[in-house]
C-alpha cells in the first residue's frame, strides 16, 4: 500500500476523491498533452483550459473561492476540486502521483 503524505490544504470546492498523475497546466497550454484522468494543477483556470478540465479527474488551484471558475465547473462535472491552496503549483511537480480529497480540501502525494 503506497504511503501518502499530506502536502496541501485548501478550500473544499467540490466533493469526491481522485487519484492520478498531476499535470501542471497553465493558461494557453496545449491541451493535447493533457490526458484523460490526469489531475489538473494550476494557478486558476480559464476558458483556454476547458478541454483539459473536461478530461481531468480532479482540479487543484492556487487561488479562487467556492464560487470561482474551477469550483463551479468541477461541481457541475462531479469531479473533486480543491482551491485556494496558495502553493499547489510550487509544491506539486509534473507526473507526481497524488490523491485529492475534495470533501476535506486535502491533497496527498503518494509514494
Amino acid at each position: 500500500m503506497p504511503k501518502r503524505q499530506l502536502i496541501l490544504k485548501g478550500i473544499a470546492a467540490s466533493p469526491g476523491k481522485a487519484k492520478g498523475k498531476a499535470k501542471l497546466f497553465f493558461s494557453g497550454d496545449d491541451s493535447s498533452n493533457f490526458n484523460e484522468g490526469d489531475i489538473l494543477v494550476t494557478t486558476i483556470t480559464d476558458p483556454t483550459m476547458v478541454q483539459a478540465m473536461i478530461r481531468a479527474a480532479a482540479i487543484i488551484t492556487d487561488i479562487g473561492g467556492i464560487t470561482s471558475h474551477p469550483a463551479i465547473l468541477s461541481r457541475e462535472m462531479g469531479i473533486p476540486c480543491v482551491v485556494n491552496t496558495k502553493e499547489a503549483t510550487k509544491k506539486i511537480k509534473d507526473n507526481m502521483l497524488i490523491n485529492v480529497d475534495g470533501l476535506k480540501g486535502e491533497v496527498y502525494v503518494l509514494d
Binding site: P47, E76, M77, G78
Partner: peptide, 16 residues
Amino acid sequence: ARKIGQLITAVGSLVH
C-alpha cells in the same frame, strides 16, 4: 449527468 456537467463546462467557458 457527467456529460451534462461537461456541456455546462464547455458552454459556460464559451460564454466566459
